[in-house]
């Protein structure tokens, strides 16, 4: 037995999206919000467009970093939440590998990216394939999957680096294929930094 994606997706997708008085949704032991993807993409593209050529790489790294910081802290909340514990953990037989499978089922269930693990070498390398993700229809030039890059790096850090919160920046994620540049899917490779 390993984590069954369909079981996890069905259970995790069954979530209340009623926000509190601050517009935040308390779920999975963290606070999330519900905003249009276009808002994030418009922000990313505007800030990239505004950056001078010599600073575009820096801005890109900043966008990935924002997703990473969010993913690392929120991700820890998610994989230690009651719902994850109830739904995913009973199916975990391959330790971290299965937790990561559960995490990508969660990404899919919550609309972050229909994505999954293609290859995984424990503690060293992971390849993710995504059939959609926030920036898949980005109008920007080149590979633009900033959010999934950050999230994939964060979850691999949570799975294989030092225990939270000491394991930050152990791994790095590169995007190697993108729907936004005409590939049939996005591909993200996490390796040691």
């Amino acid at each position: 037995m390993t984590v069954m994606r369909d079981t996890a997706v069905k259970a995790l997708a069954n979530v209340q999206v009623q926000s509190d008085e601050n517009g935040l949704i308390p779920e999975y032991e963290v606070l999330v919000n519900l905003l249009p993807i276009k808002l994030l993409n418009a922000f990313s593209e505007r800030i990239m467009a505004a950056a001078p050529p010599e600073r575009k790489a820096e801005v890109e790294a900043g966008l990935v970093r924002a997703a990473y910081e969010c993913g690392y802290h929120t991700g820890c909340g998610i994989i230690t939440s009651d719902i994850f514990n109830d739904v995913v953990m009973p199916m975990v037989t391959e330790d971290e590998k299965d937790i990561l499978r559960g995490a990508y089922a969660a990404f899919t269930a919550w609309g972050w990216a229909k994505s999954g693990i293609v290859q995984l070498k424990p503690g060293e390398k992971m390849i993710i394939r995504a059939l959609d993700y926030y920036e898949a229809d980005s109008g920007g030039e080149g590979l633009r999957g900033f959010m999934l890059r950050g999230l994939s790096q964060a979850f691999f850090d949570l799975a294989y680096a030092e225990t939270y919160p000491d394991g930050m920046d152990t791994f790095v994620c590169h995007q190697t294929k993108g729907i936004e540049v005409g590939d049939p899917h996005g591909e993200f490779v996490v390796v040691k930094k």
């Binding site: 994606r5 369909d6 499978r101 990508y104 999954g116 693990i117 293609v118 394939r129 899917h185």
Partner: peptide, 9 residues
Amino acid sequence: VGRDGFVIE
């Protein structure tokens, strides 16, 4: 298909 049921390709 991945072991978790993810249709990879």
